[in-house]
């Protein structure tokens, strides 16, 4: 059974169709990518999945439950983690605290517990620290736990954002262009991290322009063009699909 199932999703902005009649599914433990030329509507799809925008039509099902009308924070609590194309870290916090902040999704206490410092708070705090340590280790940032997040170089910022998403204890993480702006060494670290995540039975859905990365690590690919799905399948088949070549690979000037 699919972990995430999108059916008939549509969204337009002021008459312009950003996404139209999009359906696909992500199986548990898969690494799946959404690719497409610039402006194909990939980030819009992410924002629809996470609830930043409400869809005009269609449904998003997660673990068998319709989450289409839920607020972003509720989806996060249910197990949909995400990162952002323009990395939105909390720069004033330490690396560790960025991830600890995210444990809000899985470890919630009522306000009075914090206000009066009930013992449960200290217990939860220990668990948060453990979760953070584990997530940081997974992406290879365990040595930088105490550094201010604002001091990290671009590649590690991406990794930290992934670790933060892991802090929510997600079943699926949505990564929005995780390799954008990274050099080769950094991309390699990213690749390792994504595989390590999958090895922890966390499903990965990513939007990515780096074709090398996508072809190498993904099990399946969805190709979007102008908001509509034009192909879906394993990397080898996608590479040979005529429509994909025409829409995407055939226009090399388009990919970043």
């Amino acid at each position: 059974m699919a972990l995430l199932k999108v059916s008939g999703l549509a969204k337009s902005f002021g008459g312009v169709k950003a996404v139209s009649d999009l359906s696909f599914a992500v199986a548990p433990n898969q690494i799946k990518a959404i690719i497409g030329p610039n402006g194909a509507g990939k980030t819009t799809v992410f924002n629809l999945l996470c609830g930043v925008f409400a869809a005009d039509a269609g449904t998003v099902e997660f673990a068998g439950r319709n989450i289409s009308s839920l607020a972003p924070y509720v989806r996060a609590r249910l197990g949909v983690g995400r990162t952002f194309q323009n990395t939105l870290l909390f720069d004033e916090m330490s690396v560790e605290e960025n991830v600890m902040a995210a444990t809000e999704a899985g470890l919630r206490l009522n306000a009075f517990a914090y206000l009066f410092r009930w013992p449960a708070v200290a217990r939860a705090e220990r668990q948060r620290r453990e979760i953070a340590a584990e997530a940081l280790k997974l992406v290879g940032l365990q040595d930088k736990a105490r550094d201010p997040a604002g001091n990290l170089p671009a590649g590690e910022r991406r990794l930290l954002e992934i670790a933060r998403a892991l802090g929510t204890r997600p079943e699926i993480v949505l990564l929005d262009e995780p390799a954008a702006g990274l050099n080769n060494a950094e991309t390699d670290r990213l690749k390792h991290a994504i595989r390590a995540i999958r090895d922890r039975s966390i499903t990965v859905l990513l939007v990515e322009h780096d074709m090398g990365l996508v072809m190498e690590i993904c099990d399946e690919i969805v190709v979007l063009d102008q908001g509509a799905k034009i192909a879906e399948g394993p990397p080898l088949l996608i590479q040979e699909d005529d429509r994909v070549i025409e829409a995407y690979l055939g226009r090399p000037a388009d990919n970043a």
Partner: peptide
Amino acid sequence: SQKGRALRAMHGNELAAASIGVD
């Protein structure tokens, strides 16, 4: 506490805070 962390997250960026489950 975690509450303060969540608040600082929200102050930093509401979209990112929501993405980690902060109401």
